[in-house]
């Protein structure tokens, strides 16, 4: 039934893990990338992610269509994004503080409405198989890819193109880099920021639906384990570049699979250390890519952390 892979199981598990685990990171970080490019930080995406997981699961259960569930999760995320965007548009409101409040609100409301959803089983999102050419069942299993992952790649490319080549991208960047310049050019600042935050909320909601409807594919109150927060940090790690966000998400997904994979081939001691691999890797990369001259490259100048 299965082929003995020996040590090859580790790279295979890392590949499989990268494809399975990275999608929520990818969606949240792409959304947050747009939000931050417009000059706001939304730390509440962790709450939006958990709420999206609940709303997606509930939507799929009620409508019988997982894709409608994804849409409902995204729209719920839009509501959270709009709320964050609107509250932060009031004078002297700190976006980080609002984000933390939204994080607690999102998780709390999700737990409240999610109670009756823990037991029933909702229809799941389908997988696309890319491993049909291989005889190795493990490889076939690793190459089961969610359509959402492919959509995520597409969105990353589109966003990169948008920021570089389109008027819309230019406006978002200008609002995020210099509010004064945008004002002088006559572009509305608040609507752009609220719209960018709503987009970030949509993406985080969809990421939540991926968690509850594809992998690990169930709604419970521990579903996220902080992935929304890590994804926000990934944006900074990826220097506000959508393509780099994709790379960072893959890196985190793959490194997260390292711990279980090493234990499964018999490297059994030190697993707590291997579980820290994604974070150690981040520190190492940050250390080697840091530069005194380019410290703020790509950073939107209007962000409350860079201002």
């Amino acid at each position: 039934m299965t082929t003995d892979l020996g040590i090859w199981a580790v790279p295979l598990a890392v590949l499989g893990g990268a494809l399975r685990v990275s999608t929520p990171f990818l969606f949240v970080s792409l959304g947050e990338c747009v939000t931050e490019k417009s000059g706001r930080i939304n730390l509440g995406l962790e709450g939006t992610l958990v709420f999206g997981a609940m709303a997606g699961y509930g939507g799929s259960l009620l409508t019988g269509s997982p894709w409608l569930g994804v849409l409902i999760a995204g729209l719920a995320g839009v509501l959270f994004g709009l709320m964050h965007g609107a509250v932060c548009s009031l004078p002297r409101v700190n976006d980080i503080a609002v984000g933390i409040a939204m994080m607690l609100l999102g998780t709390g409301v999700a737990f409240f409405f999610g109670k009756p959803l823990i037991q029933p089983a909702a229809p799941m999102l389908p997988a696309i198989s890319f491993g049909g050419w291989s005889d190795v069942p493990q490889l076939r299993a690793a190459l089961e890819v969610s359509p959402l992952f492919l959509i995520g790649i597409l969105v990353a490319v589109l966003l990169a193109f948008m920021f570089k080549r389109t008027r819309l991208g230019l406006i978002i960047r200008m609002v995020g880099d210099s509010a004064d310049a945008a004002r002088a050019m006559g572009y509305p600042i608040l609507p752009v920021r609220i719209g960018a935050t709503a987009f970030g909320g949509f993406m985080a909601g969809v990421a939540g639906a991926y968690l509850s409807l594809y992998y690990p594919g169930s709604w419970n109150e521990h579903i996220s384990s902080g992935q929304g927060l890590i994804a926000v940090a990934l944006v900074i790690f990826a220097r506000w570049n959508p393509i780099a966000c994709f790379g960072a998400a893959l890196l985190f997904g793959g490194a997260g699979a390292l711990g279980p994979a090493l234990q499964s081939v018999g490297v059994t001691s030190g697993y707590y250390l291997f579980y820290a691999a994604p974070y150690i890797l981040t520190l190492v990369i940050l250390f080697f890519t840091s530069s005194r001259n380019r410290a703020l490259d790509g950073a939107p100048r209007e962000l409350s952390i860079t201002k």
Partner: peptide
């Protein structure tokens, strides 16, 4: 949950 699922796959 995510780690448990990864462990099962491994």
């Amino acid at each position: 949950p995510v780690k448990e699922a990864e462990a099962v796959n491994a």
